[in-house]
Design a protein around this nucleic acid. Structure first.
Length: 477
RNA sequence: CGGGGCGUAGCGCAGCCCGGUAGCGCACCUGGUUCGGGACCAGGGGGUCGGAGGUUCAAAUCCUCUCGCCCCGACCA
């Protein structure tokens, strides 16, 4: 294994792969397009799951589990849905040594199988709202894959809800988008822009799709979560009806929303540096690593005894690990833990023992500092929070520095022919205009952001007069 | 599916053009010296050269066929 990762400036995409492999987050599997999530990567996902699962439950949802296999005919019930997903479905045609009467699709998403069950369960308005979530794997046969960002099989969470009214479904759609926004920002330290997707980018079968979009360090956008208002499209296809207070049959109004292991890729791309991974403390499986320094047996004993007190200060307050590996020197360990993204390092050597303090080194680029052992119990958790906040601020500053308000067509083209970034510009609202920009500049409208006032004027892409708010254009993953 | 690479020790590579004992660095094992930013010395283990055919006295090397992976493009959480 070579020592360092490829610098971002040399080859961003190679850098990303290097970081993922060297931090041992994941590895390529024997199956094309699939990956093995290694313990370091899976622990991050488990933290994401734990925190987000709490948020999902706190908003009234319950977890359930639906099967991996979906009868092929289910997928065909909603016209737009099948058109969107059929090309990327894996289909089981044989099982038990025989050809199946009806092929089974490996779920690319679970709308259809869930909706078939919802139709059975929902009778009355008293059964609503139905608020379910599941943690599962899904399979989409993508052409091009990248570790975490796009793999054939991935892990995610998919929420599916049914409501008695359109307004309620819309509220739910926005509520969960807000959960994602808050989670990305507060837990992953990733600032995101939330808003509405254009028709050409919306989920196959949805009425409206909303998304959160983050900016990666190469200035490209990454869609980090989506929330869909499904209207009654699926309810009609699957006959999900309930009897209302007046005794009349009504179709339910539905939503679905999800985030995936892609979030791990987002964390890598937003916070990583040329030394490797940088983890926000709130999702770091190991928040603090303690590196003891000694040469003589006597020093070893002194440092070891001193470490007992350090551990006592950390235990139960932060997730820490002491690196007693004897075959490596301290410098090697520093580099190793930096590559793996541990937010804070504590060094304890003979000089520290002498003075009754430890040396602290922040992974996010802050300077080293000393701290008395007596102050660790309070000081370390506080420092981790400071690192968490500073990562968010840095990411936000980067995004702001690379977001441009553009009116002029020349400038619009120039940005996307060059370094890229987020461009806030007027848009005519035309799908053809959007398609033409995508064709020419590989740039798309990421979202029509919330809270942006209407700002009528000529479209930055085609010059046609537009009416809505400014939209966010960017190249995307 | 198109265009590029590449398959030789766990990892990264050289050797192939010009056939003749399979090598280097890292990692690993043993012993010693080291230890505050990726230590050093000495010794050692580890290979169906992606696979199948063929040419040849002899193939990692030449020929044919195959399989796989990575990168770049068209689809996407």
């Amino acid at each position: 294994m070579s020592l360092a990762v490829t610098p971002r400036s040399e080859d961003y995409s190679r850098w990303y792969t290097d970081v993922v492999l060297k931090a041992e987050l994941a590895d390529y599997s024997p199956v094309k397009g699939c990956m093995v999530i290694r313990p370091n990567g899976y622990a991050i996902w488990e933290n994401i799951q734990r925190i987000l699962d709490r948020m999902i439950k706190d908003t009234g949802h319950k977890n359930a589990y639906f099967p991996l296999f979906i009868p092929e005919s289910f997928l065909h019930k909603e016209a737009e849905h099948v058109e969107g997903f059929a090309p990327e479905c894996a289909v089981v045609t044989h099982a038990g040594g025989k050809k199946l009467e009806e092929p089974l699709v490996v779920r690319p998403t679970s709308e259809t199988i869930m909706h078939a069950m919802f139709a059975k369960w929902i009778m009355s308005y008293r059964d609503l709202p139905l608020l379910l979530n599941q943690w599962a794997n899904v399979v989409r046969w993508e052409m091009r894959t990248r570790l975490f960002l796009r793999t054939t099989e991935f892990l995610w969470q998919e929420g599916h809800t049914c409501h008695a009214s359109e307004e309620e479904a819309q509220e739910e759609t926005l509520r969960m988008l807000e959960v994602y926004r808050a989670f990305a920002q507060e837990t992953l330290a990733i600032p995101v822009i939330h808003g509405l997707k254009t028709d050409s980018e919306k989920f196959a079968g949805a009425v409206r799709t909303y998304a959160i979009e983050g900016m990666m360090q190469d200035r490209k956008a990454l869609q980090a979560g989506t929330s869909h208002n499904l209207g009654q499209n699926f309810a009609k296809a699957f006959e999900i009806q309930y009897q209302d207070r007046d005794g009349k049959m009504q179709h339910v109004w539905q939503t679905s929303w999800g985030v995936s292991t892609r979030l791990v890729g987002a964390v890598v791309m937003v916070h990583g540096d040329d030394k490797g991974l940088v983890l926000p403390p709130r999702i770091a499986p190991t928040q603090v690593v303690v590196v003891p320094i000694y040469s003589s047996e006597a020093d070893h004993a002194r440092v070891s005894e001193f470490a007992v007190g350090v551990e006592a200060a950390l235990r139960g307050r932060v997730l820490y690990e002491i690196d007693w590996r004897d075959q490596y020197k301290p410098g090697w360990k520093y580099a190793d833990w930096e590559q793996k993204g541990v937010p804070l390092r504590i060094e304890i050597g003979p000089r520290d023992v002498e003075k009754g303090h430890v040396m602290l080194a922040r992974r996010d680029g802050g300077a080293k500092q000393t701290m008395p052992v007596a102050a660790l119990a309070e000081g370390v958790p506080a420092l981790l929070e400071e690192i968490q906040a500073s990562l968010l601020k840095r990411a936000l500053d980067f995004r702001e520095a690379n977001t441009f308000e553009v009116d002029d067509h020349e400038r619009f083209e120039e940005i996307f022919a060059g370094d890229g970034g987020f461009v806030r510009a007027r848009w005519c609202g035309g799908a053809e205009c959007e398609a033409s920009v995508k064709e020419r500049l590989k740039t798309t409208i990421r979202v029509i952001p919330f809270g942006a006032p209407d700002d009528p004027g000529p479209c930055a892409a085609c010059g046609t007069k537009g009416t809505g708010p400014r939209v966010i254009w960017a190249k995307a993953y």
